[in-house]
Simulated scan of single mutants.
Amino acid sequence: MSELLTIILLGIVEGVTEFLPVSSTGHLILATRLLGYDAGRWEVFNVVIQLGAILAIVVLYWRTFWAVAMGLVKREPKSWLFLRNLVVAFIPAAVIGLALHKYIEALLGNAEVVAIALVVGGFAILAVERFAPRSDVSGVADLPLRTVVGIGFLQCLAMVPGVSRSGATILGALALGVERRTAAEFSFFLAIPTMLGASALELIKNRDTLASGQGVGVLGIAVGFAVAFVVALLVVKWFVGIVTKHGFVPFAWYRIAAGSAALVWLLTK
């Protein structure tokens, strides 16, 4: 496969999976094994294109962010509660992620762990959809502090590749009594500080690779970034509509099918 085609394919994978409860990191790890390319060479590329998907959220929800920013200037309580909830939910991942960084890295090359996590996560989604309490709590600013803390710690489960950051936060919110649309949007917003922090850490760690030009070139990274951005723009709008009408069950069955197929392939190859 040509390098350009690989760049486009990985950009599509990132854009499609970053905000769905199916694990973008897990899919990229499986793609590495399936395509048989050198994961080390593409490590920085995989990190930077995540920022393309994050930019899609900023663009799609710019009115929300602008309203919050203006509210902070005017000292409006709702805006400060919005900011508080994002910061509080981000802190557990920041602290635990830094503390366990080396252990997390050791799991990132394990495709078998991804496949198992996909299947287990699929059944977890079915369980949450079946048994989670229903609530009319809506709006990020209206989430109680204890709920926000719980979501923040549940997000840390996504440090295991294949669990899915969006899946952990969305399901955690649902289990704690948050309605579907707010759970999804809070997950989107929480992705911004979480992924910016993770990307900054990876870029600092790989600064020598960037400087030496040993990885994918700047043009290739730019193409992957743009592809992830455009695809994420389309997917997020579609995802919110699906979740609002049908819930998360379709994604559960996808996880179970994809994880099972990947596990069979990995054990028989």
Rank of each mutant, 00 (worst) to 15 (best):
V240E: 07
W238R: 14
R180F: 08
I221T: 02
R255H: 03
V137S: 07
I256D: 04
A228G: 01
S187E: 12
S138K: 13
P161L: 02
L143Y: 03
A200M: 09
Y254R: 13
W238Q: 09
R165C: 03
G167F: 06
S199C: 05
F239N: 11
F248S: 04
Y254T: 07
F225T: 01
G177Q: 08
I221H: 00
L233H: 03
I242E: 11
F186E: 10
K237L: 09
R181K: 10
K205V: 08
G152V: 02
V236S: 05
L145P: 12
M195P: 13
S199I: 09
G167T: 03
M159W: 04
F248H: 13
L157G: 06
D208F: 09
I170C: 13
V249I: 15
F225H: 01
V223D: 00
V163W: 06
S138L: 10
P193H: 14
I221D: 00
L154P: 02
G172H: 08
V160I: 15
F248R: 09
V148D: 02
V178Q: 02
G139E: 03
V243C: 08
V140F: 07
F251V: 14
P144V: 04
I192R: 12
A200L: 11
A168V: 14
V178P: 05
I170V: 15
L143F: 03
G152Y: 08
I242S: 11
R181I: 15
A168F: 12
I151Q: 03
A222M: 01
A222H: 00
A200T: 12
V218D: 01
Q214Y: 08
P144I: 04
V231L: 02
F248L: 09
W238T: 08
G139P: 06
V149S: 05
V218F: 01
L174R: 07
F153E: 15
L143G: 06
V148M: 03
E179Y: 11
F188S: 13
R180S: 11
V148R: 04
V149T: 07
L190G: 12
D208G: 11
I256G: 10
L196G: 11
S212E: 05
L171A: 12
F186W: 08
F189G: 15
P250E: 06
E179N: 06
G224Y: 00
V235R: 04
F189T: 13
A175Y: 03
I204G: 15
L234T: 12
V240C: 07
T244R: 13
W238N: 09
A183K: 04
L219I: 00
L196W: 11
I242M: 13
Q214T: 12
L233K: 02
S212Y: 02
T194Q: 12
S187N: 14
L203T: 07
A222F: 00
G217D: 00
L143K: 10
L203H: 07
A173D: 06
A168I: 12
L196M: 14
E179W: 10
F188T: 13
T147A: 10
E185L: 14
A222K: 00
G224S: 01
L210P: 02
V140A: 05
I221A: 00
R207G: 14
L143M: 07
